[in-house]
Design a protein around this nucleic acid. Structure first.
Lengths: 350, 350
DNA sequence: CTTACTCATGTAAACGATTCCATGGAATCG
DNA sequence: CGATTCCATGGAATCGTTTACATGAGTAAG
C-alpha cells in the first residue's frame, strides 16, 4: 500500500518530523528553506497523509455527515447535492447516509458517524418512535454527545436543535384557492406517515386551507401513505374508489406522485382533464410529465446552503435561529377546471 | 464531546485496557466473567470506540468509496443505492462521492479517500484526459497504490482493472430493427462526450446496428452531447433543425432525455406520434412519462451487487474476471410507425 | 557587551485503540 | 506428582500524526 509516512518525508528532506509536519500542515513557523525541501520531498515520494492519525491527534476530521431517507428520492438527491457542494466550498467532506425510512439503518449510520468523529451532522429526522413517542436511542446519544447537529427539511417538535424547514401553508392555501376557483369542491390529499413532522403539518395545513376557502375538511379525503412510490400507487386506486368522487388531489411528495401517476396513466385517467393534480417537490420528473404537474416546492439549493451555514454556526459555538423557507405554488396544466372532471365520472366509472 | 475511552471502560470494569479491547472487539480469549463486566461497563458509560484510533492500528477501516458522476442522475443514484445496500450487507460502510463530470472534483474525492485509507474503491471512471489521453494523476496514484479497485458502468480500455460493464450492442440492434420495421429510415443518435468509453461504444454500436439493418450510417445523424440535461435540450433543437429530418431518435442517457423531452413538449412535438423516442437508462421518469418511453437498460441492483462482489474478491486477493451485463430493449408507446411522423413534417415546420 | 526577545528547529509526549509478548494459574497428561 | 499445555490477563509497544516544551542561534535594544 501507501507505506510512505511523514517520517520518510522528513528524513528525505533532512529535517525532523516536527518540521515536516509544520510545513505540510501550513504552520507559520517554518523557514523558506525547509519549506522547499519538505515540499519537494513530499511530492517526490507521493506522500499522502494518513487522515486517521491526523485527526486522532487533532480531534477534527474536516468532515460532516448528511443523513437522508433515500438517495433515490430526487428531492433528497437534489438536497444532498446542494449540501455537498456548499460543504465542499467550506473545506468539508460530506458523508451521505441513507436511512431508507428505517430507524435501524438510521441508527446504524449515526453510530458509524459518531465513531468516525465527524465534525457535524445534518439530519433529516425520521420522526419519533411510534410507540414510545421518543427519539431513537442513537438519536438521543447524538443529541447528548454535544456534536454539532442541525435538522433539515423536517424537525422534531420536542427537540431543541436548530432546524431549516420549509413552510408550505401559504402555498397550500394558494393551491386550494386555485382549485376552488376552478370549481373543485372535493379535493383529496395523499399524505405521509403520521409520525413525520412534515406529514402532520401538511395534513393540518391542508385542512386549514380548505376551511379558509369555505370547503369542508373531511378525514375521508385523507389518504395516509408512507412517502414511497408503492403507497402512491395504492392511493391512486383509493382515490378512484372514493365515494366522494374527488375531482382534484394534492400529493405530499414526489415518490408517491410518481407511483400514483403511473397507475392513473395505465388506467387511462387523463391528468389535467379527468383529474387535477398538484404535488409537493418540484423535481424534474414533474416537469417533463405530459402535462407538466403543478407543484408546491422550494429551492433545494438554497435549503442546502442554509443548512451548511447553520451547521457551521453551531460548529463555531453559536446558536443559529431556526429558519423557514417559504414554499411556492406553481400552477401548471395538470390542473384544469372541474367541468372537465365531471366528464370523467361517466367515462371511467360506469 | 464523547470523552469516554476504552481506558475508562477498563477501569470501570476493573480490568486492563487489553482485556477490555479484547472483549469489545470479539477476541476469543476472554473469560465470561470479564466479558460481562466489560460489556456492562461499556454500556453504562455509553462507550463508542474511536474509529480512527482503531483503524490506525489495525489498518482496516471497514469502508469503501463509491465515485459516481452525479447523485442527481437517477441512473447513478439507483446504482449508488444498490452498491450501498450490498456493501452494508457485507459490513462495509460506503462513502458516496460526486465527480460532477469534473476531473478536479474526482481527484479531490479520490485524494480524500486515499487519505482516509478506505479498504476499497468502486469507480465510475470519467474517461481519460482529452489532451494527454492519460488517466488523471490522482487516478494513477490510486492504481499504483495497490488499493483494491474496480470500475463499474464504464471501463478504461488501457487500464488493467476489473470492470463490471453493460453491453448494449444487442439491445441497440433490436431497437434499430424495431424502428426500421416500423418504417423509420432516418434515425438520429444523441450521444455522450467522446472521451467516455460508454459513449464511444454506443456511437459505434449504433452505426453497426444501422448497417446490420441495411440503413446508412451518417455522422450528420450523431449529436455529441455531454450526458447532461442542458445538452439534451440543445440536441432536441438540433434534431428539429436537422436537414435529414429524422423520424426517430435514440438518446444515450436519461438526463439528456429529460432535457430533450422537456423541449419537445414545450414546442408541441408529440412523442410517440410526431417523433419516436428510445432512451438509455430505465429510470422512473421514463416510465411515468406520457407516453412511456421505450428504453435500453439493465438491472442496476444487479450491477451494484456484482460490483460489490467483485470488489470483495479483489480485497481478498483474488483477480475476478470482468463481467458484462446484457442490456435489454423494452418497447413502449414512445415508438410508433414512421407514417405518423411524416404528418409532423407538415405540421411543425412550415 | 549584556539582556531580552524572536524564531526555526528538534525531542518527546500525546491521541485511543490493537496486538505482541511475558506471566502465572489451572488443567491435562504420562 | 512433576512436566506440559492451555488460556486469560496485563504491560508495553505500536500505528502516523500533531503539538507542548526546550534549545540554541540570531537580532535588536540598552
Amino acid at each position: 500500500m501507501n507505506a510512505v509516512t511523514i517520517k520518510d518525508v522528513a528524513s528525505a528532506a533532512g529535517v525532523s518530523v516536527a518540521t515536516a509536519s509544520r510545513v505540510l500542515s501550513g504552520h507559520p513557523a517554518t523557514s523558506p528553506d525547509s519549506r522547499a525541501k519538505v515540499e519537494s520531498a513530499a511530492k517526490e515520494l507521493g506522500f499522502m497523509p494518513n487522515a486517521q492519525a491526523r485527526s486522532l491527534r487533532s480531534t477534527k476530521t474536516d468532515s460532516i455527515a448528511l443523513l437522508i431517507s433515500d438517495v433515490r428520492n430526487p428531492y433528497f438527491s437534489d438536497l444532498a447535492h446542494a449540501v455537498e457542494q456548499h460543504a465542499r466550498a467550506a473545506g468539508l467532506m460530506t458523508f451521505i447516509g441513507n436511512a431508507n425510512e428505517d430507524a435501524a439503518q438510521q441508527d446504524d449510520f449515526l453510530a458509524t458517524m459518531l465513531s468516525r468523529r465527524v465534525d457535524g451532522l445534518v439530519i433529516v429526522p425520521q420522526g419519533l418512535n411510534e410507540e414510545s413517542n421518543q427519539p431513537s436511542e442513537m438519536m438521543n446519544r447524538v443529541l447528548s454527545s454535544g456534536i454539532p447537529t442541525i435538522f433539515v427539511d423536517r424537525a422534531l417538535p420536542s427537540i431543541q436543535v436548530p432546524a431549516i424547514t420549509a413552510n408550505s401553508a401559504q402555498a397550500l392555501d394558494e393551491a386550494v384557492a386555485t382549485l376552488h376557483s376552478l370549481g373543485h369542491q372535493k379535493i383529496a390529499f395523499i399524505g405521509g406517515p403520521k409520525h413525520a413532522s412534515t406529514a402532520l403539518e401538511r395534513y393540518s395545513a391542508f385542512d386549514t386551507a380548505l376551511a379558509n376557502n369555505g370547503l369542508h375538511a373531511d378525514e375521508a379525503l385523507h389518504f395516509v401513505g408512507d412517502f414511497q412510490p408503492a403507497s402512491g400507487a395504492l392511493a391512486a386506486q383509493w382515490l378512484l374508489d372514493n365515494p366522494a368522487k374527488p375531482s382534484a388531489v394534492i400529493i405530499a411528495d414526489a415518490p408517491m406522485a410518481i407511483g400514483a401517476l403511473r397507475v392513473w396513466r395505465e388506467l387511462g385517467i387523463r391528468v389535467g382533464a379527468d383529474l387535477s393534480v398538484i404535488t409537493f417537490d418540484e423535481v424534474d420528473a414533474m416537469l417533463i410529465h405530459d402535462p407538466p404537474i403543478a407543484t408546491i416546492g422550494h429551492d433545494l439549493s438554497q435549503m442546502g446552503k442554509m443548512a451548511v451555514q447553520a451547521l457551521r454556526e453551531v460548529m463555531a459555538g453559536h446558536q443559529p435561529e431556526p429558519e423557514e423557507l417559504i414554499s411556492k405554488f406553481t400552477l401548471r396544466p395538470s390542473v384544469a377546471s372541474a367541468k372537465a372532471t365531471q366528464v370523467m365520472e361517466g367515462k371511467v366509472r360506469p
